[in-house]
Simulated assay, not measured.
Amino acid sequence: MLHVVQPVTGGVPRVVLDLIQQHLTAPDAPRLLVACPEQGPLAGWVTAAGADWLRWDATRSPGTALPSEIRALARLIARTRPGLVHAHSAKAGLAARLALRGRVPTVFQPHAWSFEAVEGTAARLARRWEVGAARWASRIVCVSEAERATGEAAGVRGHWTVVPNGVDTDRFRPEPPAHDVLPRARRAPHDAPPALAGTDPRAPLVVCVARLCRQKGQDVLLRAWPEVVRRVPGARLALVGDGPDGERLRAGSPEGVIFAGAAEDPAPWYRAADLVVLPSRWEGMALAPLEAMACGRPVLLTDVAGARESLAPGHRAYCLVPPGDPAALARAAAGLLLDAPRRAALGAQGRRHVLTTHDVRQSARAVAAVYRDILGAERPKCRESTTS
């Protein structure tokens, strides 16, 4: 079993790691291989988890090196001879499907469609590629019904399975009860991130955990922030993550915003937050809101693919705003910051929702069922070709 992964930062490698960790606990666990670049944390993560890492040098986006990246991946596949290849995200899906062209059972998981990330001619070319390349995927796994619908609307025809993202609900959990004796407004969480040192723990804290890039919409949140502070004096904002837009976002940031950098473990940030915001322009189904809800924190999301499906029933009225609308984002964020009882109720309900609907063990079992289904369908074909 070979996972091909690029990008190696953000939510995609965490999904891959969770899958590997869960699948390695199975009694009949196969040998698990992961082909990805050395840069980023994934190579070390998978090795520590007990899988085999294969170095595959590949850039995040297609470029002039793409032909050599495809040849290198084809050599890795020929050497390791996996029974199934699972390609994660657009770039890995591009390289793996061109390297294999259907010769090995292939699962493609977009983790948000490539044509949503670009505009104009680039979007048309990406859409045309996805439509044509679908024939080389034994299964297309989407993380939300909305992501599947987006693909179908673009003309992608394939054998679909929707497996909602899951998170580790043991790792992402509320603070221990002993720390809940005092109201949140009068204390800091026991594992508060060092970047909050020197700030007033009584002041409401909004946290956004995401790569600093156009997709995640931190620029919209920064435009909304002065109005939030006007309505909720003293409110604090922390952007947790790094990425290509970091310098630009810092240059245009209102005074006092905390740029915390990337956090290998974002759980302390979620637990420190009064509200977790993700103002994305597009998604498949983001991990950060699920992790925040698992920690018992209320979330505020933009109404993009997967957002509605990730929320608990009844939360849409309070927790969804239109994408790209700073005024709506500011009104909703301020309203939640000023309503502590509602935040507490949303956080508790969100935790229960994630436990029943988005536990990583459920997701891993669903993906394993996809593998079994594909391999079971392939075996008769192999026997026929052997005897013909």
Rank of each mutant, 00 (worst) to 15 (best):
G10C: 03
G324A: 09
S388P: 11
L311S: 03
Q215V: 10
V104M: 02
G306S: 02
P322G: 13
A92I: 07
T80I: 04
R211A: 08
E384V: 15
S253H: 09
V46K: 00
P105L: 02
V162Q: 10
L278C: 06
A95K: 01
A263H: 11
A251N: 10
G314N: 05
Y270F: 15
A149C: 13
L2V: 06
R343W: 04
E119Q: 12
S68Y: 00
L212V: 06
R361H: 09
R79Y: 01
P380V: 13
H179D: 15
H315A: 15
E119K: 15
Y371G: 00
S280H: 12
A292M: 10
F259M: 05
R250M: 11
V107L: 12
Q22P: 03
R75F: 01
P183W: 02
C142H: 08
P30M: 09
G306H: 05
A49V: 08
L125G: 08
A273H: 00
D52L: 01
R372H: 14
R135W: 06
L329W: 05
V360S: 13
R383M: 11
A122L: 10
S388V: 15
R173E: 12
A294D: 05
C36N: 01
P183I: 02
T106V: 09
E130P: 07
V131Q: 15
R79L: 10
Q39T: 14
R124T: 02
L336W: 02
D28T: 11
P254N: 05
S68L: 10
P279V: 05
P177Q: 05
E255S: 14
S144Q: 07
Q218L: 12
P177Y: 02
A58S: 13
D245E: 15
A364K: 00
T199G: 01
V15A: 06
A49E: 09
R351H: 08
R101K: 13
R308K: 02
R202G: 15
W53Q: 06
Q39I: 01
C36H: 03
A262M: 00
H190V: 10
A210S: 15
A65K: 02
V207L: 01
L300D: 13
T25W: 05
A154S: 09
V104G: 03
L337T: 05
D359E: 06
G11N: 12
T64H: 03
T357Y: 11
A333C: 11
D303S: 14
A267F: 07
V276H: 02
R379S: 14
I70F: 05
M1S: 11
G306V: 07
P183A: 09
S280D: 13
A126H: 10
T357P: 00
W56Q: 04
H315V: 06
P30C: 03
A96W: 00
V181N: 08
V232W: 00
L222S: 06
R352F: 00
V209T: 10
I258R: 12
R352T: 05
